[in-house]
Simulated assay, not measured.
Amino acid sequence: MAHDECEVQGLHPEAVERVGAKMPAEETIIRLADIFKALADPTRARILYALSLEELCVCDLAALTGMSASAVSHQLRLLRAGRLVRYRREGKMAFYCLDDEHVRHLLQEGLCHACE
């Protein structure tokens, strides 16, 4: 038997009840998993980090990532769908930034954990 498994079967009903009462709705859990899926791609993580420092246009992000503007736009569409980034238009330019401070905090915590 593996050392990371219980050696006997035993249920702790009180603990299960306490935790179960605090579990978010299934749709919230799915949304959380989708956020982490979006963050799991190194290119998207790089884009998000850059946007945590400054608002940038697609061309700026393409230069930073070494990708084509079209490829960056595709990644930004995925990040927008996940409500991780938003954009504003200024003439013919589209400038991107993080959707809100929650995304910045999530990135900061992830980086701190990655550097430990």
Rank of each mutant, 00 (worst) to 15 (best):
H3V: 06
D4L: 10
E5F: 10
C6V: 10
E7P: 01
Q9P: 00
G10K: 07
L11I: 09
L11H: 04
H12R: 15
P13V: 07
V16P: 00
K22G: 13
K22C: 11
K22V: 12
M23F: 07
E26W: 12
I29P: 04
A33T: 06
K37S: 09
K37W: 10
A38K: 03
A38S: 11
A40G: 11
A40V: 03
D41V: 08
D41A: 09
T43H: 07
A45N: 06
A45V: 02
R46T: 13
R46M: 12
A50Y: 11
L51Y: 00
L51D: 00
L53E: 10
E55L: 05
L56E: 04
C57S: 14
V58L: 05
D60E: 09
A62N: 06
A69H: 03
A69Q: 09
S70H: 08
A71E: 06
S73L: 08
H74A: 07
L76I: 04
R77H: 11
L78W: 00
L79Q: 01
A81H: 09
G82H: 00
R83L: 07
L84F: 01
L84K: 02
Y87Q: 09
E90K: 14
G91H: 06
C97Y: 00
C97A: 15
D99I: 09
H102Q: 05
L106H: 02
L111A: 12
C112P: 07
E116Y: 12
E116G: 13
